[in-house]
Amino acid sequence: MSPADIHQQLVRQFGDKITGANVTALDPWVEVAPAAIVEVGTYLRDDPALLFDALNDLCAVDYFEPDAKKAAKFAHQPHVEVVYHLYSYTLKHHLKVKAKLPRWKNDQAGELPEIPSVSKVWLIGEWHEREAYDLMGITFTNHPNLRRILCPEDWEGHALRKDYDFPLEYHGIRGQ
């Protein structure tokens, strides 16, 4: 099934919950409304024509230019993207699903944006989401165990954010 067909099928099934797509890109992707990610994910996994039984990778990308001078030239609106790389072991095809989130919830700096967790749909999502929470600062609601995974529990900030400042000190250990 070509990415265009998959996109058509998803639009027929979910209507305006599919908020965008680029099926001619280097890696074709489909954009989903964050609130519908579990519903769409379950459908993608179970539909006999799609059968995306594996979440190959989950990562988040922060689109933001901290430097005010360069920000005017920056091609993207500030946002955070969660990217789901899906793969079907049975049908051997790929799809990339994206969900766009605001950088901060309600534009309050420090309030992490929220998206439902897909760890019930694909079990491996649990660890990937913990990593995305740890390094990118995204809250996955209904996650069974949302704790930091790579950084210590008392670490401050989320390192892969573009405006992250490396702490000068951590428990008496000097940084930088």
Binding site: N56, D57, C59, V61, D62, A75, V83, H85, I124, E126, W127, E131, L160
Partner: peptide, 29 residues
Amino acid sequence: GELGFYIVGDGSDKAYRARCRPPSYIHFA
């Protein structure tokens, strides 16, 4: 296992995001 890299390019000679999909991470889970 599958060692993948997800690169977001921004037109320069550096990656905007260089995500690694490490097999050990998935297997340790």
